[in-house]
Amino acid sequence: MGCASSKQFKRAPHHEDASILAKETTFSVNEVEALYVLFEKISYSIFKDGLIHKEEFQLALFKNSNRKNLFADRIFDLFDLKRNGVIEFGEFVRSLHIFHPDTPMEDKIAFAFRLYDLRGTGSIEREELKEMVLAILNESDLLLSDDAVEQIVDQTFQQADLNGDGRIDVDEWKAFASKNPALLKNMTLPYLKDITMAFPSFVLYSGSGD
């Protein structure tokens, strides 16, 4: 009954059928199975329950399970489609699909918007943008005066907030991101093209034979 032991020794939940996930995403069945090898590695790194907890996600990203990072938190929350505090295998595959090189740019733009819309209001507000700029400065140990930060935020709003209402809505974001594709570089993971090469041991798990 104890929380700690049930978290440590719970049986792995049966993961979703690879063929269903392959139909819904850019990945083939083999690639989904290869992703399971990666998922399993991450999801058993601390809690051994076949679910990715935030600490395990941070450990995989930063080699440190306690490292707090606003943007890693946002990614985790968006991957956690059911919003139950853990990432299941289906959520992992459906979310990584966005980062596949072959996924349409519109999907990446939409995902990035949700990342940056910190409070989920349907637009990126000035305060949110400033909060994110302060977070990246803090993360990078960069020191900038408040005036300089305000200037960066102002200038970005001048470029992106086309109707000047003090918020960047989804259409303004689409226009801005389309004009500045370098902003979306972090939305594409070349690794996903070669996932079966990176994790070839999937054949031991798969038996799917395709």
Binding site: A60, T156, L189
Partner: peptide
């Protein structure tokens, strides 16, 4: 120079977005 910076370009460099690290063995 801060005046030539785009906030989103700055933010997109966060290590938190570096999902490539998930694939490191």
């Amino acid at each position: 120079k801060p005046e030539s910076m785009n906030a989103f370009a700055l933010i997109s460099r966060s290590q938190g977005f570096n999902l490539g690290n998930l694939f490191e063995k």
